[in-house]
């Protein structure tokens, strides 16, 4: 641009607008990061002081009597999340394979759409679904009902990631298998799936960290339990729902333990996302 133009008021105004808007966008980026920093900071500060070994190895005291732990909640969460992965993952991976292998048609488009819609359904309605399906007919809150609700939440996440990972397997690999005379199922099971496995495991880990923090679907399915239980057909405790109870409750030591549980949960989740990103991140990128 020449010198005269650079001094014109119009140019200066446009330049100024540009600078102001750039500043606003940068400010928005800072604004968006601040909550994460604050939440992690407060969870660390408030949670760390309340961490103790007793928290891990004791059941809760009767309400109002400080002390006690959350062994029941940790056990319950581990059981239900593990069970949810065992139930949900095979179905989700099967669904993902179907969408990738046989889904390049109208049926596939509809199913893919339904998977996305299921992913968007509120977790509390999924909890009520399991309540109506299992708890109500049996008049009994059950660990298995909670696990099934979590499995339903896991299903669409893992299904879509499996689909994308299977679609990313190079066609030349399949063609090599076909050329050796392998039928389709064998190609998928021995060539395609192992190639896509790191990506699928990544998706599974992310889904696992997501359901480990879900409390809403457990309120009416597994309910909660003051004692450590491993019975799948009885009420069982869970970490996120105990955070909810303690956060809303009246006692100071409940609030402290709620922060401590949040610390464990957030550390677990952040760790999973960071590890996943470090190990398999490059494999999950691919599409921009």
């Amino acid at each position: 641009m020449n010198f005269v133009e650079a001094r014109s008021p119009l140019f200066r105004r446009r330049q100024m607008t540009n600078n102001v808007m750039t500043g606003i966008m940068g400010f928005a980026a800072v604004l968006a990061v601040v909550p994460l920093v604050l939440i992690v900071f407060h969870v660390l500060v408030n949670g760390f002081g309340s961490l103790s070994i007793n928290l891990l190895i004791e059941d809760p005291n009767s309400p109002g009597r400080p002390g006690g732990g959350i062994r029941n909640a940790i056990t319950g969460s581990a059981i239900m999340v593990g069970l949810a992965v065992l139930i949900g993952a095979p179905i989700a991976i099967g669904c993902g394979i179907f969408l990738a292998e046989y889904g390049q048609n109208r049926l596939g488009t509809i199913l893919r759409f339904l998977v996305d819609v299921l992913a968007g359904m509120p977790s509390i309605t999924i909890g009520l679904f399991m309540y109506a399906l299992i708890v109500l007919p049996n008049s009994q809150f059950m660990a298995i009902a909670g696990a099934l609700a979590l499995a339903v939440i896991l299903l669409p996440i893992v299904a879509r990631i499996t689909e994308e990972m299977v679609l990313l397997v190079p066609r030349s690999l399949r063609e090599a298998a076909y050329a050796l005379g392998a039928p389709r199922w064998r190609t998928v099971m021995t060539i395609v799936l192992p190639t896509a496995l790191p990506g699928i495991v990544t998706g599974l880990m992310l889904a696992l960290s997501r359901i480990a923090g879900e409390a809403a679907p457990l309120l009416f399915t597994s309910l909660g339990n003051q004692f450590t239980s491993t019975d799948l057909f009885r009420a069982i405790d869970a970490v996120p729902s105990r955070i909810y109870t303690y956060a809303a409750g009246p006692f100071d030591y409940w609030h402290e333990q709620a922060w401590a549980m949040s610390l464990m949960l957030v550390l677990f989740i952040l760790l999973v996302s960071i590890v996943v990103r470090a190990i398999a991140g490059s494999k999950v990128t691919v599409r921009q």
Binding site: L36, I39, V43, L265, V266, I269
Partner: peptide
């Protein structure tokens, strides 16, 4: 910013 999405709902509530 994406990590914000990974923090559980109850932790937001507590905070």
């Amino acid at each position: 910013v994406e990590l914000l999405a990974a923090i559980p709902s109850v932790v937001y509530g507590l905070w």
